[in-house]
Structure formats: C-alpha cells, structure tokens
Design a protein around this nucleic acid. Structure first.
Length: 221
DNA sequence: CGAGTTTGACCCGCGC
DNA sequence: GCGCGGGTCAAACTCG
C-alpha cells in the first residue's frame, strides 16, 4: 500500500478499533511497558512492545487538536517484540492511539514448545489523559470494576455493546502516574466502527500528533 | 421504560 | 487444600 502524503495508508485494527498507517516510516520505540513496574511482572503481562509519546485528552477539534500517544504495546505477541510503526495515526472519535498489528505479528514466536495457548488478541496502550474513557468509536458497556492490588486506582471492565461482538477492554489509571490511563483491548470486533475515524499526523518539529483528516466508518476494512 | 452504571457476590486459576 | 487476586455476574439503581 503506497502511502500518499503523511497520512494516507492506514491500518485499521480490528481489536481496538484504532487505526494506524500501513506505511514504513519509523516510530522510535523508547521503552517497553512493564506491568506493575520493572520487578513485578505478572503472568498477565507479556506485553511485547511499547511506544513512547504522551497524550493530551480528548479530541475536541478534528482540525487542529493535538495529542501525544503514550506507550503502546501488544499482549498477543511474543515478549520483546519491538514495535516499529509509522509516524501517522488514525483515531476514532477522539481516541488517542493506534496500532499496526503487523508489527507484533511480524515477530517470530519464541516457540512455546508443547503448550499451545489459545491466542487471544490483546493490545494495550497508555495515554496521558484526564478522562479515562477514550472514545474509540465503539460503543462500550461497563460490566465491572475492581480494585487492583498494588494500585490505588480501580480497574474498570467494558464490553462492546454491539450484539454478537465480545470484545472487551480494561481501563485503569497508571499507578505510577495517575495522569496516564492504561487501556487494554481484548478480542476482535466483528463489525466496523459506528463512527468516524480520525487520522493523525505527527508534527516533525514538536513530535506531537495532530488530527489530519477523517474517514467515514466502514471504509477501513 | 429501556439502556447503561454501580457494586457486592461469586467463580476460577494460580501460587504456596 | 487453602488463600489471594483478577475477572465476571447480576440485581439494584440511575439517567435520559
């Protein structure tokens, strides 16, 4: 897919509903996400990659708003997979993150030998936001809330409210920096986003992202 | 009144 | 086997 301009080729992630360019420009991967800190990695956190940036809240104005993408990582890929994405992003109704799934899938699995675990698509990212609910274009229904050990902040559980779609997402504030929101998507949407997807480009000078355009729902698949 | 949220209870996997 | 922690359920409640 040939990218036209800075924000033409976009990959639409079926899990999160978020999108990313299919181009080959470079994101600079600055860090891996370590769940619960560097020394307390839990079994649920083989997060493979993280993307550094930061994000300022919602996307009120599609034409001029800016945001920084925070850390972004996959949980369905082998550990230590390094994310190399492209410098543009697509957003869906105010969401502030995106993904190129291929980045995770391109990394060869570390051969988990005999045990073949059911593969659940899971991606997660961290965004700097005052609000916890980033609007990614899908309709979510909250079904649970739990306080998490080692974290003062509760974790919220959401399910895609579209009939027949069993995608889930968890939302919690970063225990180390409450100004960040950690969102984890699990599953694959079997429908398109009901709302407009916003495309973002990155400002070369500041490194910040800004909304560069929009695309109606259904046109990404 | 229907859809969505809240919240305590319950279930289950995992480590000891 | 037991306790702990994470995830889900479901009844009650709220809101538009």
């Amino acid at each position: 897919m040939a990218a036209v301009g800075a924000h033409a080729a976009v990959y639409h992630h079926p899990v999160s509903g978020l999108s990313a360019p299919a181009g080959d420009a470079a994101y600079s991967m600055s860090s891996y996400f370590s769940h619960g800190g560097s020394s307390t990695s839990s079994s649920a956190s083989s997060f493979s990659a993280a993307l550094a940036a930061a994000t300022t809240p919602p996307l009120p104005d599609p034409s001029g708003s800016q945001f920084d993408i925070s850390e972004f990582f996959f949980d369905d890929a082998p550990p230590a997979a390094v994310f190399n994405g492209a410098p543009t992003a697509a957003l869906s109704d105010g969401a502030a993150a995106h993904a190129t799934r291929s980045a995770a899938e391109a990394v060869p699995a570390p051969a988990p030998a005999a045990v073949e675990r059911p593969r659940t698509e899971r991606i997660a990212f961290r965004t700097k936001s005052e609000i916890e609910i980033l609007d990614d274009g899908y309709k979510w229904r909250k079904y649970g809330k739990k306080s998490v050990k080692n974290s003062p902040n509760p974790r919220n559980y959401y399910r895609c409210s579209t009939e027949g779609c069993n995608v889930k997402k968890r939302v919690e504030r970063d225990k180390d920096d409450p100004s960040y929101v950690v969102t984890t998507y699990e599953g694959t949407h079997n429908h398109v986003s009901p709302s407009t997807v916003y495309y973002a480009s990155q400002d070369a000078a500041s490194g910040r992202f800004f909304v560069a355009g929009t695309q109606p729902p259904g046109s990404l698949n």
